[in-house]
């Protein structure tokens, strides 16, 4: 394949990665923005979403679209409820003290991961996509015969991958409407601005926190349900999304939602493109190191405001 079509293929893969990443990172960003909590267990909520999707589709059987449709709704809800429960039982008790919260979420990480290992086992579990048509893509170039449309071999995607991209866009719009147009969304944003004042105005900050923690975990789980027909469910799959989501949230500016979206696109696309052309380990080394340096020298994020 020539460079042009190859790049287009890489960009498509990047867009799929971005779509999943933006949902996962949004969850992390909302939780940090509103609660000032760094949730190290976020990747495990992602993993749990994927594993639940496998469980639900296997349990229901029948046409893959049936199980998948149910999983798309039920898995994020279950994971969200679990997270809200964990917030009540654990994080609230330690008053969201930053150090202790990190340690507690590390503990939650192992509890979720290892419980999954004990109940689902160490195997990777596939989930069948609800639909999966192969779509060949055209390529345009100016050749000797002028403008021509060709169908290079290997330049193709699947209808499911396009669906993932579309679904992520829809969820993002829904989230935006939820946060700006609904009462509970407004309450969340008020709490983010200033939790003490919000409390003084009668906002039940404690309940809002549980909702937010559940929402954040639910978004990660939703991303995972979408990814699981492409990538199999496995009890250790939470590690990479966690790291990538961290990177996105840091680049985008801690807690800034528009920054998170832009950074997710940036990171997802470059991850897709870089890993097609370069050694993935070297790319990861550079990316991880650069992100650490961003945090050291520009803690407000690359896209954050410069004002203190």
């Amino acid at each position: 394949m020539e460079f042009g079509p190859h790049l287009m293929l890489a960009s498509l893969e990047g867009a799929v990665i971005s779509a999943i990443l933006v949902l996962t990172a949004m969850g992390l960003s909302i939780v940090f923005g509103v609660m000032r909590v760094v949730n190290v267990a976020h990747g495990e909520f992602f993993m749990l979403g994927a594993v639940l999707a496998w469980y639900i589709t296997t349990l229901l059987g029948g046409h893959p679209a049936l199980g998948f449709g149910v999983a798309l709704i039920v898995a994020p809800l279950l994971v969200g409820c679990l997270a809200a429960f964990a917030d009540r039982v654990i994080l609230k008790r330690i008053n969201y003290d930053p150090d202790r919260t990190i340690v507690a979420t590390i503990g939650m990480l192992y509890i979720i991961q290892q419980t999954t290992l004990m109940t689902f086992g160490p195997e990777a579990r596939p989930v069948e996509a609800p639909f999966n048509h192969r779509l060949s893509l055209p390529w345009f170039e100016f050749g000797e015969n002028g403008f021509a449309m060709t169908w290079p071999w290997g330049l193709s995607t699947t209808s499911y991958k396009l669906f993932v991209i579309g679904a992520a866009v829809v969820v993002l719009i829904a989230l935006w409407v939820f946060l700006t147009r609904t009462k509970i969304g407004l309450i969340m944003r008020a709490t983010q601005q200033d939790s003490e004042t919000a409390q003084a105005f009668g906002v039940p900050v404690g309940q809002v926190y549980s909702w937010v923690f559940g929402l954040g975990a639910g978004l990660a789980a939703l991303g995972a349900v979408l990814v699981v027909p492409i990538q199999q469910a496995h009890y250790l799959m939470g590690h990479d999304p966690l790291l990538l989501a961290f990177i996105v949230v840091i680049i985008g500016g801690l807690g800034s939602l528009p920054g998170t979206v832009i950074a997710a696109l940036l990171i997802g696309m470059s991850d897709g493109i870089i890993s097609v052309f370069f050694s993935p380990t070297l790319a990861k080394i550079i990316a991880t190191f650069l992100v650490a340096m961003v945090l050291v020298f520009r803690p407000q994020g690359l896209l954050g405001k410069t004002a203190p």
Binding site: I90, I94, R100, V103, A104, I106, L109, Y110
Partner: peptide, 8 residues
């Protein structure tokens, strides 16, 4: 994991 959570 359980020990970490219980301790904190």
């Amino acid at each position: 994991g359980v020990v970490l959570v219980l301790l904190t």
